[in-house]
């Protein structure tokens, strides 16, 4: 009982802080200086129609490199923690078949879902979406495969090859930007092209596709590691 009272007291204090924040908030009438710079210069410097993509891939590219590294570490630690719990294979309990509808449906839906994921991350600089969303859609195709065939084992070597290849290429493109253009991860190593076309915005489609592959491989590895853990 005393614990619940302490929790409620803590929440009241936090709620009071939130209330003062909320009543003191007034929306800006104009963009602040950083946002104004991005709004004015993205089209002519970067050539990307989606300003959020321009910030993530180019202006703040180093942060995104750190982000995919953190995600890689999370996936690696999940694999490490669950490594000894993985089913030995032969000891797997035989599960009930998943049904004709799911098996057939997954065969016809899988290529379409993969295509949608690739479309989302290739068009990241023009439309909403990009590497993270596309990677998650690709991973959900892998999830459908897992649901249709629960005893299936993914090829972990293939996943780690895709993951390390795209991570390595990402860093190589960043260093190329340092040598050929203005700085690390500068997208102007390729021509900026015509605004609004698929092959425009320099290296952004290339970098975002690599991020999409890397994120998709990492999510697939987390999903397959958790689904291969032995039932306790």
């Amino acid at each position: 009982m005393i614990k619940r009272a302490a929790a409620l007291l803590l929440l009241t204090i936090i709620g009071g802080i939130f209330f003062t924040l909320l009543t003191g908030y007034s929306a800006d009438e104009n963009l602040n200086l950083t946002a104004q710079y991005y709004a004015e210069n993205t089209a002519k410097d970067i050539g990307a129609a989606n300003i959020v993509t321009a910030i993530i891939v180019t202006y703040r590219g180093l942060d995104t490199l750190g982000e995919v590294t953190v995600l890689f570490l999370a996936a690696a630690i999940v694999g490490l923690v669950l490594a000894r719990s993985r089913g030995a294979g032969a000891a797997q309990t035989v599960k009930a078949p998943v049904g004709e509808l799911l098996t057939t449906g997954s065969h016809s839906l899988l290529p379409l879902i993969l295509l949608l994921g690739i479309y989302i991350f290739v068009n990241g600089h023009l439309t909403p979406g990009g590497g993270f969303q596309g990677g998650a859609v690709v991973a959900s195709a892998m999830l459908l495969l897992l649901l249709a065939n629960p005893v299936k084992r993914f090829n972990h070597r293939l996943i780690s090859i895709i993951e390390s290849f795209s991570g390595f290429s990402y860093v190589v493109i960043g260093v190329l930007g340092l040598l050929l253009a203005g700085g690390f991860l500068d997208n102007r190593i390729l021509p900026i092209g015509e605004f609004g076309q698929l092959f425009s915005a320099g290296a952004i489609p290339l970098i975002y596709s690599l991020i999409g592959l890397k994120v998709g491989a990492e999510f697939s590895s987390i999903l397959s590691n958790l689904s291969e853990a032995e039932e306790l």
Binding site: P128, A136, V137, S140, L143
Partner: peptide, 16 residues
Amino acid sequence: DVAMTEAAIGSGLTTF
């Protein structure tokens, strides 16, 4: 952009 990410990751993959 945020809506797509939240729908795909937050409500899709995390639930699974």
